[in-house]
Every structure is written in structure tokens, then in C-alpha cells.
């Protein structure tokens, strides 16, 4: 009777507690996960170190498009066009002013003719 009772009680306890073998498996799994996390952390640390090193390096000149050197014959033509435009504009200025003075002279002749 006592023996049967003891077995029943043990079975009842066993049903409620995890067996030792399972504990061992669980601990091994967790350990594996911790090791994997450790490896990932080490990897991230390495990345941070590389980035820090890159930032610490002096800034190199920004990459620019290769400067296209204009053809000197072309720039000479542009300069010439600019010179011609400026000189023409200035010549027109004088032409217009001379026109005013010319009309003034014409009117003076008319005036003298009338008197």
C-alpha cells in the first residue's frame, strides 16, 4: 500500500517537473544562442571600429567631374563675340546721342531760315 502510494506520488511529481535530460537540452540550446549572439556582437563591434576609423581619416577632396578644358579656339571666339557686342552697344549709344545733336542742328537751321 505504502509502496503503491509512493509510486503514485512520484508519478504525480514527475508529471509536474521537467526531466533532467530535458533540462540539459534546454541549457545547451540557450548556451548555443548566447554564443551566437556573442559572435554577432563581435561582428557589429568590428563594423563600428571600421566606421570609426573611416570617420577619423582626413576628408579627401570630393570626387568631381573631370574639368573639361574648353577649346582655346572656342574661348577666343566667345571673347571676340563679347568684345564685338560691347563695342557695338557702345557705338549705338554714340550714334543715338549724335542723332539727338543732329536733329538739334537741323532745327537750328530751320529756325535761322524762319527769322
Amino acid at each position: 500500500m505504502a509502496k503503491r502510494l509512493r509510486r503514485a506520488v512520484r508519478a504525480w511529481f514527475d508529471a509536474r517537473y521537467i526531466p533532467r535530460a530535458e533540462h540539459r537540452d534546454a541549457v545547451r540550446d540557450i548556451l548555443w544562442e548566447v554564443q551566437a549572439a556573442g559572435r554577432e556582437l563581435a561582428e557589429l563591434r568590428r563594423e563600428v571600429e571600421t566606421m570609426r576609423a573611416r570617420l577619423a581619416k582626413p576628408v579627401t577632396a570630393p570626387v568631381t567631374a573631370p574639368v573639361k578644358v574648353p577649346d582655346p579656339r572656342q574661348t577666343a571666339r566667345w571673347d571676340d563675340a563679347h568684345r564685338l557686342a560691347s563695342e557695338t552697344a557702345s557705338a549705338v549709344d554714340h550714334l543715338l546721342q549724335n542723332e539727338i545733336l543732329l536733329w538739334q542742328a537741323v532745327d537750328r537751321i530751320d529756325l535761322e531760315g524762319a527769322t
Binding site: 546721342q97 539727338i100 545733336l101 536733329w103 538739334q104 532745327d107 537750328r108 529756325l111
Partner: peptide
């Protein structure tokens, strides 16, 4: 407009 004889630029 036209300048009179005594007017100038």
C-alpha cells in the same frame, strides 16, 4: 523730344 539750341546732352 528735340533739344533747343541752348539744351545739351
Amino acid at each position: 523730344f528735340r533739344l533747343d539750341p541752348e539744351d545739351g546732352l
